[in-house]
Design a protein around this nucleic acid. Structure first.
Lengths: 90, 90
DNA sequence: TTAAATTGTCCAAAATTTGTCAAGTCTTTT
DNA sequence: AAAAGACTTGACAAATTTTGGACAATTTAA
Protein backbone atom coordinates (compact mmCIF):
# COMPACT_ATOMS: atom_id res chain seq x y z
CA UNK A 1 0.00 0.00 0.00
CA UNK A 2 2.58 2.58 0.96
CA UNK A 3 4.95 0.74 -1.30
CA UNK A 4 2.84 0.97 -4.42
CA UNK A 5 2.22 4.57 -3.63
CA UNK A 6 5.89 5.39 -3.38
CA UNK A 7 6.57 3.54 -6.57
CA UNK A 8 3.90 5.53 -8.34
CA UNK A 9 5.38 8.75 -7.06
CA UNK A 10 8.85 7.71 -8.00
CA UNK A 11 7.92 6.74 -11.52
CA UNK A 12 5.78 9.74 -12.20
CA UNK A 13 8.75 11.85 -11.19
CA UNK A 14 11.14 9.89 -13.38
CA UNK A 15 13.34 8.86 -10.54
CA UNK A 16 15.29 5.63 -10.72
CA UNK A 17 15.25 3.04 -7.96
CA UNK A 18 18.94 3.50 -7.57
CA UNK A 19 18.54 7.22 -7.17
CA UNK A 20 15.81 7.12 -4.59
CA UNK A 21 17.63 4.37 -2.75
CA UNK A 22 20.64 6.64 -2.54
CA UNK A 23 18.56 9.41 -1.04
CA UNK A 24 17.20 7.04 1.54
CA UNK A 25 20.68 5.65 2.08
CA UNK A 26 19.68 2.08 1.50
CA UNK A 27 20.47 -0.65 -0.99
CA UNK A 28 18.50 -0.53 -4.18
CA UNK A 29 17.53 -4.17 -3.79
CA UNK A 30 16.00 -3.25 -0.48
CA UNK A 31 14.00 -0.41 -1.92
CA UNK A 32 12.79 -2.64 -4.69
CA UNK A 33 11.45 -5.00 -2.08
CA UNK A 34 9.94 -2.21 -0.06
CA UNK A 35 8.03 -0.88 -3.01
CA UNK A 36 6.65 -4.32 -3.59
CA UNK A 37 5.74 -4.74 0.07
CA UNK A 38 8.22 -7.50 0.59
CA UNK A 39 10.03 -5.42 3.17
CA UNK A 40 8.93 -2.45 5.24
CA UNK A 41 9.90 1.16 5.15
CA UNK A 42 11.31 2.50 8.35
CA UNK A 43 9.46 5.20 10.17
CA UNK A 44 12.23 7.69 9.34
CA UNK A 45 12.01 6.97 5.65
CA UNK A 46 8.54 8.37 5.60
CA UNK A 47 9.68 11.83 6.56
CA UNK A 48 12.33 11.83 3.89
CA UNK A 49 9.89 10.59 1.28
CA UNK A 50 7.31 13.19 2.18
CA UNK A 51 9.91 15.86 1.63
CA UNK A 52 11.27 14.44 -1.58
CA UNK A 53 7.89 14.07 -3.19
CA UNK A 54 6.29 17.01 -1.42
CA UNK A 55 3.50 14.97 0.04
CA UNK A 56 1.60 15.67 3.24
CA UNK A 57 3.40 13.69 5.88
CA UNK A 58 0.13 12.69 7.44
CA UNK A 59 -1.01 10.79 4.39
CA UNK A 60 2.13 8.76 4.03
CA UNK A 61 2.34 8.10 7.71
CA UNK A 62 -1.21 6.87 7.80
CA UNK A 63 -0.62 4.48 4.96
CA UNK A 64 2.58 3.30 6.50
CA UNK A 65 0.90 2.62 9.80
CA UNK A 66 -2.06 0.91 8.15
CA UNK A 67 0.40 -1.47 6.52
CA UNK A 68 2.06 -2.15 9.81
CA UNK A 69 -1.29 -2.84 11.42
CA UNK A 70 -2.42 -5.17 8.70
CA UNK A 71 0.78 -7.06 8.94
CA UNK A 72 0.16 -7.94 12.53
CA UNK A 73 -3.54 -8.51 12.14
CA UNK A 74 -3.93 -10.26 8.86
CA UNK A 75 -2.64 -13.63 9.92
CA UNK A 76 -5.57 -14.16 12.24
CA UNK A 77 -9.26 -14.77 12.01
CA UNK A 78 -11.74 -12.04 12.79
CA UNK A 79 -9.43 -9.35 11.57
CA UNK A 80 -12.19 -6.97 10.68
CA UNK A 81 -13.99 -7.38 13.96
CA UNK A 82 -10.75 -6.86 15.81
CA UNK A 83 -9.95 -3.73 13.85
CA UNK A 84 -13.36 -2.34 14.62
CA UNK A 85 -12.97 -3.18 18.26
CA UNK A 86 -9.55 -1.57 18.23
CA UNK A 87 -10.97 1.65 16.84
CA UNK A 88 -13.52 1.75 19.61
CA UNK A 89 -10.74 1.48 22.13
CA UNK A 90 -8.27 4.00 20.85
CA UNK B 1 -8.90 -5.30 27.36
CA UNK B 2 -8.65 -9.07 27.10
CA UNK B 3 -6.84 -8.94 30.39
CA UNK B 4 -9.53 -7.13 32.30
CA UNK B 5 -12.04 -9.42 30.76
CA UNK B 6 -10.27 -12.53 31.90
CA UNK B 7 -9.84 -11.09 35.34
CA UNK B 8 -13.54 -10.39 35.55
CA UNK B 9 -14.32 -13.92 34.49
CA UNK B 10 -11.84 -15.37 36.89
CA UNK B 11 -13.14 -13.40 39.84
CA UNK B 12 -16.77 -13.96 39.13
CA UNK B 13 -15.97 -17.65 39.08
CA UNK B 14 -14.02 -17.47 42.30
CA UNK B 15 -10.84 -18.74 40.82
CA UNK B 16 -7.51 -17.70 42.26
CA UNK B 17 -4.68 -16.35 40.16
CA UNK B 18 -2.59 -19.27 41.21
CA UNK B 19 -5.25 -21.72 40.14
CA UNK B 20 -5.83 -20.26 36.73
CA UNK B 21 -2.11 -19.88 36.24
CA UNK B 22 -1.74 -23.56 36.92
CA UNK B 23 -4.32 -24.41 34.30
CA UNK B 24 -2.51 -22.27 31.78
CA UNK B 25 0.78 -23.72 32.92
CA UNK B 26 2.39 -20.38 33.57
CA UNK B 27 3.79 -18.51 36.53
CA UNK B 28 1.23 -16.71 38.65
CA UNK B 29 3.27 -13.51 38.49
CA UNK B 30 3.01 -13.73 34.73
CA UNK B 31 -0.73 -14.15 34.76
CA UNK B 32 -1.03 -11.23 37.12
CA UNK B 33 0.79 -9.12 34.58
CA UNK B 34 -1.26 -10.45 31.73
CA UNK B 35 -4.50 -9.56 33.41
CA UNK B 36 -3.21 -6.07 33.93
CA UNK B 37 -2.08 -5.83 30.31
CA UNK B 38 1.55 -5.64 31.24
CA UNK B 39 2.24 -8.80 29.30
CA UNK B 40 0.33 -10.54 26.56
CA UNK B 41 -1.54 -13.76 26.48
CA UNK B 42 -0.33 -16.25 23.97
CA UNK B 43 -2.60 -17.24 21.18
CA UNK B 44 -2.94 -20.73 22.62
CA UNK B 45 -4.03 -19.42 25.98
CA UNK B 46 -7.14 -18.05 24.40
CA UNK B 47 -8.44 -21.48 23.46
CA UNK B 48 -7.85 -22.78 26.94
CA UNK B 49 -9.53 -19.77 28.49
CA UNK B 50 -12.55 -20.05 26.25
CA UNK B 51 -12.98 -23.62 27.37
CA UNK B 52 -12.45 -22.95 31.04
CA UNK B 53 -14.89 -20.10 31.18
CA UNK B 54 -17.20 -21.42 28.50
CA UNK B 55 -16.95 -18.33 26.37
CA UNK B 56 -17.33 -18.11 22.60
CA UNK B 57 -13.81 -18.40 21.27
CA UNK B 58 -14.53 -15.77 18.69
CA UNK B 59 -15.15 -13.09 21.29
CA UNK B 60 -11.96 -13.71 23.19
CA UNK B 61 -9.95 -14.03 20.05
CA UNK B 62 -11.26 -10.76 18.73
CA UNK B 63 -10.37 -8.97 21.92
CA UNK B 64 -6.99 -10.56 22.01
CA UNK B 65 -6.28 -9.50 18.45
CA UNK B 66 -7.58 -5.99 19.04
CA UNK B 67 -5.08 -5.70 21.85
CA UNK B 68 -2.30 -6.90 19.65
CA UNK B 69 -3.28 -4.41 16.98
CA UNK B 70 -3.45 -1.52 19.39
CA UNK B 71 -0.08 -2.42 20.71
CA UNK B 72 1.52 -1.90 17.34
CA UNK B 73 -0.56 1.10 16.40
CA UNK B 74 -0.94 3.12 19.51
CA UNK B 75 2.56 4.52 19.64
CA UNK B 76 2.02 6.51 16.50
CA UNK B 77 0.04 9.49 15.37
CA UNK B 78 -3.03 9.08 13.21
CA UNK B 79 -3.87 5.76 14.77
CA UNK B 80 -7.56 6.08 14.09
CA UNK B 81 -7.09 7.07 10.49
CA UNK B 82 -4.71 4.21 10.00
CA UNK B 83 -7.11 1.74 11.55
CA UNK B 84 -9.86 2.93 9.27
CA UNK B 85 -7.60 2.68 6.28
CA UNK B 86 -6.59 -0.78 7.39
CA UNK B 87 -10.20 -1.90 7.55
CA UNK B 88 -10.77 -0.67 4.03
CA UNK B 89 -7.86 -2.77 2.88
CA UNK B 90 -8.57 -6.06 4.57
C1' DT C 1 -0.21 -13.33 60.62
C1' DT C 2 -1.48 -15.63 56.37
C1' DA C 3 -2.99 -15.84 51.81
C1' DA C 4 -3.26 -13.41 47.48
C1' DA C 5 -1.58 -10.52 44.33
C1' DT C 6 1.88 -7.27 42.51
C1' DT C 7 6.42 -5.55 41.29
C1' DG C 8 11.01 -5.44 39.73
C1' DT C 9 14.75 -7.32 37.50
C1' DC C 10 17.35 -10.39 35.10
C1' DC C 11 18.22 -13.82 31.53
C1' DA C 12 17.72 -16.83 27.64
C1' DA C 13 15.43 -18.13 23.74
C1' DA C 14 12.85 -17.10 19.91
C1' DA C 15 11.35 -14.34 16.35
C1' DT C 16 11.79 -10.52 13.34
C1' DT C 17 14.13 -7.42 10.83
C1' DT C 18 18.15 -5.85 8.15
C1' DG C 19 21.73 -5.72 5.07
C1' DT C 20 24.48 -7.57 1.40
C1' DC C 21 25.55 -10.07 -2.64
C1' DA C 22 25.49 -12.54 -6.74
C1' DA C 23 22.82 -14.02 -10.27
C1' DG C 24 18.68 -13.51 -12.97
C1' DT C 25 15.04 -11.34 -16.05
C1' DC C 26 13.52 -8.05 -19.34
C1' DT C 27 13.82 -4.27 -22.26
C1' DT C 28 16.21 -1.05 -24.94
C1' DT C 29 20.54 0.41 -27.46
C1' DT C 30 24.22 -0.05 -30.37
C1' DA D 1 23.58 -10.43 -31.51
C1' DA D 2 25.94 -8.43 -27.85
C1' DA D 3 25.92 -4.92 -24.40
C1' DA D 4 23.97 -2.02 -21.16
C1' DG D 5 20.56 -0.31 -18.02
C1' DA D 6 16.81 -1.01 -14.69
C1' DC D 7 14.89 -3.83 -11.69
C1' DT D 8 14.06 -8.43 -9.26
C1' DT D 9 15.06 -12.54 -6.70
C1' DG D 10 16.79 -15.71 -3.40
C1' DA D 11 19.84 -17.03 -0.08
C1' DC D 12 22.37 -16.14 3.85
C1' DA D 13 24.52 -13.92 7.85
C1' DA D 14 24.17 -10.35 11.19
C1' DA D 15 21.81 -7.46 14.15
C1' DT D 16 17.99 -6.16 16.81
C1' DT D 17 13.67 -6.69 19.12
C1' DT D 18 10.39 -9.11 21.35
C1' DT D 19 9.01 -12.51 24.38
C1' DG D 20 8.70 -15.54 27.91
C1' DG D 21 9.76 -17.31 32.18
C1' DA D 22 11.96 -17.49 36.93
C1' DC D 23 12.28 -15.72 41.42
C1' DA D 24 12.67 -12.77 45.26
C1' DA D 25 10.87 -9.00 47.52
C1' DT D 26 6.88 -6.20 48.45
C1' DT D 27 2.37 -4.79 49.04
C1' DT D 28 -2.53 -5.42 49.96
C1' DA D 29 -6.41 -7.22 52.21
C1' DA D 30 -8.75 -10.59 55.24
Amino acid sequence: MIGEHIRALRESNDVLLRQLAAQLEIDQAMLSKMERSERSFKREHIDVLAKIFKQPKKDLLTMWLADKILKTAKSEKFTKEALRLAIDNV
